[in-house]
């Protein structure tokens, strides 16, 4: 694992959690959720890194190098990106509906269910 990737992903995750916990606008909370997902994806892809490895593709006739980076985390990251896209889509449609019902996006005011 490379140091820069690792540090960047941790910074992204912590910033995403900061956005979810402190921002009051519902849109900014959705952006925070996306940031957490992207940080984890970055860490997942860089978990498969091997020095001097190349892309894990088989070109059968013209292949010269056989030392690949780990292809499993790349497949897992694809699944995780799809899930992140679906979460964003669902959250945004809920935000549109909240604006319709409540007239505001401030989470201090969207709290009819309490106690």
């Amino acid at each position: 694992m490379l140091l820069e990737n690792y540090l960047c992903s941790i910074v992204l995750i912590v910033l995403g959690l900061y956005a979810i916990i402190t921002k009051k606008n519902a849109f900014k909370i959705v952006i925070g959720m996306g940031l957490v997902d992207y940080g984890i994806n970055l860490m997942l892809v860089s978990a498969g890194f091997r020095v001097n490895g190349t892309a894990p593709i088989f070109d059968a006739p013209t292949q010269t190098q056989y030392f690949f980076v780990d292809p499993v985390p790349q497949a897992l990251t694809l699944t995780s990106i799809v899930i992140g896209a679906c979460v964003t889509a669902l959250a945004l449609s809920l935000v549109v509906k909240i604006k319709e019902h409540y007239g505001t996006l401030d989470t201090d005011k969207v709290r009819r269910l309490n106690g």
Binding site: A26, A91, L94, V95, K97, I98, H101, Y102, V110, R111, R112, L113
Partner: peptide
Amino acid sequence: AESIEAAF
């Protein structure tokens, strides 16, 4: 309105 808020 409560369903949307709870779901969010």
